Simulated scan of single mutants.
Amino acid sequence: MARYCFQLHVRPERMAEYAERHRAVWPEMQAALRDTGWRNYSLFLREDGLLIGYVEADDLAAAQAAMAETEVNARWQAEMAQFFTGLDGRGPDEGFALLTEVFHLDDERASA
């Protein structure tokens, strides 16, 4: 399964509320993520608003497309968009920047 890492920027003045919302992610949103192929999904928030996400998926583009078809995702993204900067009119699920993986310990062990 492929690993993906991405970044977004949460408005510093909204970080506490953003974190609070993620302590109670709707069960139907969690189910939709699982059902559309998102695995081992985590979010990390730095004190200046930098948000790093990590997810594993067989195909991230397919998982994103499947999520985009769900009603619960449309509701969630509409509520979450207000927390971010730099989206240029896109939703958070469309506006994140993917990071390039340059090292993974288990990959190094497998090639040794």
Results as ranks from 00 to 15, higher is better:
36 T>M: 05
107 D>A: 04
99 L>I: 08
13 E>L: 03
33 L>M: 15
100 T>M: 14
81 A>L: 04
49 G>T: 01
1 M>C: 06
65 A>H: 11
14 R>V: 04
17 E>D: 12
44 F>L: 12
44 F>R: 13
101 E>Q: 06
86 G>D: 09
65 A>M: 05
73 N>F: 12
23 R>I: 03
97 A>C: 12
31 A>M: 11
35 D>G: 12
33 L>E: 15
28 E>F: 06
73 N>I: 07
101 E>V: 08
57 A>I: 09
61 A>V: 11
31 A>W: 05
95 G>C: 05
35 D>E: 07
2 A>E: 13
91 G>I: 03
33 L>A: 13
61 A>M: 10
12 P>E: 03
25 V>A: 03
73 N>D: 13
24 A>K: 11
51 L>W: 06
94 E>R: 10
72 V>C: 08
73 N>L: 15
56 E>S: 02
28 E>S: 07
105 L>P: 10
76 W>D: 00
21 R>L: 01
25 V>S: 09
38 W>P: 02
59 D>F: 00
39 R>Y: 00
97 A>M: 13
27 P>T: 07
53 G>S: 07
30 Q>A: 11
57 A>V: 00
38 W>G: 01
46 R>I: 03
112 A>Q: 15
96 F>D: 12
50 L>Y: 09
85 T>G: 06
73 N>R: 14
41 Y>R: 02
1 M>Y: 00
64 Q>I: 13
2 A>D: 13
48 D>C: 01
66 A>V: 09
94 E>T: 07
97 A>Q: 14
75 R>C: 06
61 A>F: 00
40 N>F: 05
4 Y>R: 01
34 R>C: 12
109 R>V: 15
86 G>W: 12
111 S>W: 14
85 T>D: 01
13 E>D: 09
111 S>R: 15
106 D>M: 14
111 S>G: 14
93 D>G: 07
100 T>I: 13
26 W>N: 08
4 Y>A: 10
37 G>M: 06
69 E>M: 13
64 Q>L: 14
81 A>Q: 10
106 D>F: 03
61 A>Q: 10
79 E>R: 13
18 Y>P: 10
55 V>L: 05
58 D>N: 10
37 G>T: 01
23 R>K: 04
59 D>I: 05
14 R>P: 11
106 D>W: 09
87 L>G: 04
76 W>C: 09
76 W>L: 01
32 A>I: 07
89 G>F: 01
104 H>I: 02
45 L>M: 09
53 G>E: 08
73 N>A: 11
95 G>S: 02
92 P>D: 02
108 E>P: 02
82 Q>Y: 01
14 R>W: 02
16 A>S: 08
89 G>S: 00
96 F>L: 06
89 G>I: 04
35 D>W: 08
26 W>Q: 05
40 N>K: 13
46 R>V: 00
89 G>A: 04
76 W>G: 02
46 R>H: 08
42 S>H: 15
79 E>A: 10
96 F>V: 08
33 L>Q: 15
108 E>D: 13
52 I>D: 04
31 A>F: 08
19 A>M: 11
74 A>G: 05
87 L>K: 04
22 H>Y: 09
31 A>D: 09
96 F>A: 05
65 A>R: 02
19 A>P: 00
58 D>E: 06
55 V>I: 02
25 V>C: 07
56 E>N: 02
33 L>K: 14
105 L>E: 06
17 E>F: 07
62 A>Y: 04
10 V>C: 04
50 L>M: 01
44 F>Y: 14
